[in-house]
Design a binder for these strands. Sequence first.
DNA 1: CTCCTATGTTGACAGAAGAAACATTACCGC
DNA 2: GCGGTAATGTTTCTTCTGTCAACATAGGAG
Lengths: 185, 185
Amino acid sequence: MYTVSTYHHGELRPALLRSAAQLLEKRGPQALSLRELARRAGVSHNAPYRHFAGREALLAALAAEGFHRLGEALARTAGRDMGEAYVRFALEHPQLFRLMFGGQLRLARHRELAQAALQPYEALLTVFRAQPSLADAEKAAAAAWALVHGLAHLLLDGHFARQATDPAAFARAVIGAVRFASRPG
Amino acid sequence: MYTVSTYHHGELRPALLRSAAQLLEKRGPQALSLRELARRAGVSHNAPYRHFAGREALLAALAAEGFHRLGEALARTAGRDMGEAYVRFALEHPQLFRLMFGGQLRLARHRELAQAALQPYEALLTVFRAQPSLADAEKAAAAAWALVHGLAHLLLDGHFARQATDPAAFARAVIGAVRFASRPG
DNA sequence: CTCCTATGTTGACAGAAGAAACATTACCGC
DNA sequence: GCGGTAATGTTTCTTCTGTCAACATAGGAG
């Protein structure tokens, strides 16, 4: 009934994740259906359930991968360029970024995801703690994260379409417009 | 065949929007289906199509309404409290906020929505332009928007769950940790 | 009163998620 | 090698959704 050699895909999980990532960026999250992924892997429509509890679990896995990649991207940059790196990541993988931060996946429900999601703040915190002149490194790191995060979101959504002909340059300028409160005295 | 007095609902469009808003906040965007709304309005499953071109159009209308409400909320506050008001709005209507800024609705496709979406920045810009000491009011306004926007998003997503036992207070503190570059000299 | 247009209704279709029951393969102890 | 068991895929079925097309009703303009 089946060709013997292809009954088992063998690499289904990674294959699914790979085409999921592609499909996500190309057609958005709505177009990302388990069945479509199964089709692309040349496998029955229910096979993915052997590897993911459901659609949401697959998305969570994708997002977790995204957090790791973002963490690495930030770690590769020197302290001051982190903000731009953050925005660049978002602009390069818009749909992935939205999946990660779109609120559709609740962190509490996916341990792996919650774990992965800690990376960006940790990375920022490390840098800010190294600056003793700051009044409050934690608050400053939080503010920095919020700033670049909001900037990324707003750029993606096109809210700065007029002001930002060159998004990267715009991001640099906006980030440059901000100072952090320093220790009194 | 039908009870004469109920064939026409009479207030269907607003009724749909109202229960859509409720359902959105209560069960999230996935649970918001046109059919469910029709059911709640006591109307056939296709009646909503007389008032909205499709699901996306209804979501766009909801989001546009959200932008107007946000704009009004900002306008009601004095200059310095705008940031907190912005965050408060997000925390009070998390799903609506995500709908507005989740990137699922493309501004370019819904004129009314694109128009409504201009309000927040305009409101901020007005305030920042009134401060002549600033080096660049546009950039500062953009930075302020990004800051509060990112803060709202991160709080909603639970990324500050540890640091922010009281989200409003945390927001105040983070916003307070930021200064804007002032005119040299 | 008649006709037109707004608004709702019915019925049908394709596509999706997911559950259940079944088939095939791979691997491990012997 | 060999047989059993767990892992991986398949089929089938149910339920839900968005959307289209054809039809029904209500209420106002003439």
